[in-house]
Design a protein around this nucleic acid. Structure first.
Length: 386
RNA sequence: GUGGCCAUAGCUCAAUAGGCAGAGCAUCUGGUUGUGGCCCAGAAGGCUGUGGGUUCAAGCCCCACUGGCCACC
């Protein structure tokens, strides 16, 4: 169980195609996992997910711990039975919430105390409890409790890294179930020496897979890519590599070129709920007036249910009218887009032509303006802290 | 018919004592990376119902008109 086999390796990049076996099926890598934080990929049924070709879904320990509680999920036969998804699943440990809910938690050497965003109550997470919760939930792949730090803050990353490593060892030690793979998580912000140190420290612990965390959380794309360039060579080649929280289509294409096997990201589902529809040309904003009379499908040539049956004009209407169906149709398309992207990526690797695929993809895919993006993320972050 | 109140952005409303006419929603354009369908950034939008008057200066004060609401015949 949890064998990872490399089937093909690209000649000019570090891209690789592989197979990763889990108790609920074999993952063909590179693979993208849609995010179902609260044991549901928002607006989609498991049947929808199967139909668009999803093979792996991510859920979140912190959110499920708060509601409905991990023991309830265990009592219902585990996460697969609970949510009606029979294929592989992955749970994040709650480490990301150390970052995303930074105003609502207190850290110490032993663990982290969260104040619930639901009712304000206090909840203690330790490496041992995070593993216990994930054993209750029962995903195929589970994650160490880590500390996702501000990527540009060197001092903070140095300090946090010690905790992340100590916690990784404690998670490994606390783990009991043999039918779950526990992944270690490399941290270290954008600092190459910290990343190398982290990758080596965790590699020595011999995890069945390795994640790279702490990226796509405020640094630039260039900083993320160069961090990957320095981190991935330090990870054991015979284990799957998982880039957490990434990402945008262009970041996945770049991540694969650097040797990443597994991705997860809320982006396709979240932007879908705000009218952002993914195509090979880039993102279409379906709220825009320019689609009011547009009879074309979201993406010409797409085989998804949305594109096969509805016009851009109809989708725009659903968004303007705030109809629930718009969220569903947009999410369905975006996940199908991601699945087609991943299978095209895999096919290119198997054909030994990934470098060409990458340059063609990037030539056509229009990436959002990064200056605008960063300016807006900053103002959003500042508002949040007030 | 008489009296009173009201009229400001597409909508609902602000504007100290007469001193550069604003907000929310709607509209338009962006953004969202281990998720709160949340949220964030920006833009456009005004002869202040009409016509006169007072004043250096009027959304604000005065007169008439038009339209609406209320009360009383």
């Amino acid at each position: 169980m949890f064998d990872f086999t490399t089937i093909a390796r690209d000649l000019t990049t570090h891209a690789r195609a592989g197979e990763f076996t889990t108790p609920h099926g074999t993952l063909l890598t590179p693979v993208f996992a849609p995010v179902g934080t609260q044991s549901t990929v928002k607006t989609l049924t498991p049947r929808d997910l199967r139909e668009v070709g999803a093979s792996l879904v991510l859920s979140n320990t912190y959110h499920l711990y708060l509601r409905p509680g991990t023991e309830r999920i265990r009592n219902f036969g585990g996460l697969h039975a609970w949510m009606g998804w029979e294929r592989p699943m992955l749970t994040d440990s709650g480490g990301f919430q150390v970052f995303s809910l930074a105003q609502m938690r207190k850290l110490d050497a032993d663990g982290v105390t969260f104040r619930s965003h639901i009712d304000g109550s206090l909840h203690r997470f330790t490496p041992e409890s995070a593993v216990q919760s994930q054993e209750n939930i029962g995903a195929d792949i589970i994650m160490c409790l880590d500390e996702c730090a501000e990527p540009l803050d060197r001092r903070y990353n140095e300090e946090a890294l010690g905790r992340t490593h100590a916690w990784a060892a404690r998670c490994l030690n606390a783990k009991r179930r043999p039918d779950q793979a526990l992944f270690g998580i490399v941290q270290g912000g954008i600092f190459n020496d910290l990343r190398v140190h982290s990758a080596r420290t965790l590699s020595a612990m011999d995890f069945p897979g390795y994640a790279i965390g702490g990226l796509s959380v405020g640094e630039t794309k260039e900083q993320m890519y160069q961090t990957l360039d320095h981190t991935i060579p330090e990870l054991p080649p015979h284990r799957p590599r998982y880039l957490m929280g990434v990402g945008a289509p262009e970041d996945i294409v770049e991540g694969v070129a650097r040797g990443i096997d597994i991705f997860d990201c809320v982006l396709p589902t979240r932007v879908a709920r705000n009218g952002g529809l993914l195509t090979r040309q880039g993102r279409l904003n379906m709220r825009s007036a320019r689609y009011a009379e547009d009879p074309l499908p979201v993406e010409v040539g797409c085989d998804c249910y949305t594109c096969q049956n509805f016009s851009r004009a109809y989708l725009r209407h659903l968004f303007k009218a705030e109809e629930i169906l718009g969220l569903h149709l947009a999410t369905l398309h975006n996940i199908r887009f991601m699945m087609r992207l991943m299978s095209d990526i895999r096919a290119a690797i198997l054909a030994g032509a990934y470098d060409q695929f990458r340059s063609e993809f990037l030539a056509y895919y229009q990436v959002p303006d990064q200056a605008v993006r960063h300016a807006q993320l900053e103002s959003r972050k500042q508002k949040k802290q007030q």
